[in-house]
């Protein structure tokens, strides 16, 4: 085998490997759908966040506008403080927007849905969303449902 043929093969191999990595990153994983632009952060306080976790999606009308970037527990008020990174191009959430935790499908992952209000001032970096609805906890619902059935 000549040196040149060997070099060509190695070149093909490396190119195929890099192409495969690229394909997995862009076509298989969500890298291409993750925002790369700048973000601003807003926070919201929930009584119960259910199964929400860091990197959970934040949506408006079903469109991905950002992700959960931090979750803390505020022991003074006994609430969870959730920080969301919202992409800069979605900059028109009024200050009376409502943040609710929903579940995709019956058992799917949990996400935050932002519903804009009617004010003319918009949320900006560091703002706090006043209106926050906690997660619907499936176990609680089922528990209530069962106890209702039993009590009948």
């Amino acid at each position: 085998m000549t040196r040149q043929i060997l070099e060509i093969w190695v070149g093909v191999f490396v190119a195929a490997g890099i192409a495969a990595l690229f394909m997995l990153a862009m076509k298989v994983s969500n890298l291409s759908t993750v925002s790369t632009g700048d973000t601003y952060e807003i926070t919201a306080r929930f009584d119960n966040i259910g199964g929400l976790s860091i990197r959970s999606p934040v949506k408006a009308s079903g469109v991905l506008v950002g992700r959960v970037s931090n979750i803390k527990y505020d022991k003074d008020y006994s609430v969870a403080v959730v920080t969301m990174s919202i992409q800069n191009r979605f900059d028109s959430f009024s200050i009376d927007s409502r943040a609710s935790i929903y579940t995709a499908g019956l058992l799917g992952e949990q996400y935050i849905e932002l519903v804009p209000g009617i004010e003319d001032n918009y949320l900006e970096d560091g703002s706090d969303v006043v209106m926050a609805d906690s997660a619907l906890i499936l176990e609680n619902l089922i528990g209530r449902f069962i106890s209702e059935i039993i009590s009948k």
Binding site: L24, V28, S29, N30, L31, S32, T33, V34, R55
Partner: peptide, 11 residues
């Protein structure tokens, strides 16, 4: 696939 395979956590 793209919706659920996370770049950082999975890939």
């Amino acid at each position: 696939m793209q919706k659920s395979v996370d770049f950082h956590e999975d890939f």
